[in-house]
Computed example of a mutant assay.
Amino acid sequence: MTKNSQRTKSRKPSKPADCVRDLPETGLVRQSQLIPGVLPFSHTTLWRMVKRHAFPAPVKLSPRMSAWRVEEVRAYLADPAGYRKAHEIATVHAETPEQEAGNVVSIHGDVA
């Protein structure tokens, strides 16, 4: 083993706080930039959280490429529990355009 390979193997991963500081102020970040440095969970957990609306949804850049808005990732990291609660409240109070207009039709065809 050379000295360089020994340094590489003994090097500890950066602390999450250091990785958060390394994120750009604005823009988009890919999954490989978030895991494992910034987010303390696996890619599978990340996608489960996105599906449950417990983590910001990514932006589709192409059919096979997604990225996250840095501002939304920072908001999540600042207060993960608060992010989830705020999203749950927004989801519960969201109305469809039909509901807002009062044109909701029941399953029996009557206007509700």
Rank of each mutant, 00 (worst) to 15 (best):
G27F: 04
G27R: 03
G27P: 02
G27E: 04
L28Y: 14
L28P: 04
L28K: 09
L28V: 07
V29L: 02
V29K: 00
V29F: 03
R30K: 10
Q31P: 00
Q31A: 13
Q31S: 11
S32E: 12
S32N: 08
S32Q: 11
Q33K: 11
Q33R: 10
I35R: 03
I35S: 06
P36M: 04
P36H: 02
P36T: 07
P36R: 03
P36S: 05
G37A: 08
L39S: 01
L39A: 02
L39V: 02
L39K: 00
P40K: 05
P40V: 00
P40I: 00
P40Q: 09
P40S: 11
P40Y: 01
F41A: 04
F41D: 05
F41I: 06
S42F: 01
S42A: 10
S42P: 06
H43Y: 01
H43N: 12
H43A: 13
T44W: 08
T44E: 12
T44Y: 10
T44C: 09
T45N: 01
T45A: 11
T45M: 09
L46A: 06
L46S: 04
W47R: 13
R48V: 02
R48P: 00
M49I: 00
M49N: 08
M49H: 09
M49L: 10
V50I: 13
V50C: 13
K51N: 15
K51W: 04
R52I: 00
R52G: 01
H53C: 13
H53G: 12
A54Q: 14
A54Y: 09
A54C: 08
A54E: 15
F55A: 04
F55M: 06
F55D: 02
F55W: 03
P56C: 08
P56I: 07
P56S: 05
A57S: 13
A57M: 07
A57W: 00
P58H: 12
P58A: 08
P58G: 10
P58W: 11
V59E: 13
V59S: 03
V59K: 12
V59C: 05
K60W: 09
K60T: 12
K60Q: 15
K60R: 15
L61V: 08
L61G: 09
L61M: 12
S62F: 02
S62A: 15
P63M: 06
P63F: 11
R64I: 09
R64D: 13
R64L: 12
R64T: 14
M65C: 14
M65K: 14
S66H: 12
S66A: 15
S66Q: 13
A67Y: 05
W68M: 06
W68K: 06
W68A: 06
R69E: 13
R69C: 04
R69P: 01
V70D: 07
V70S: 05
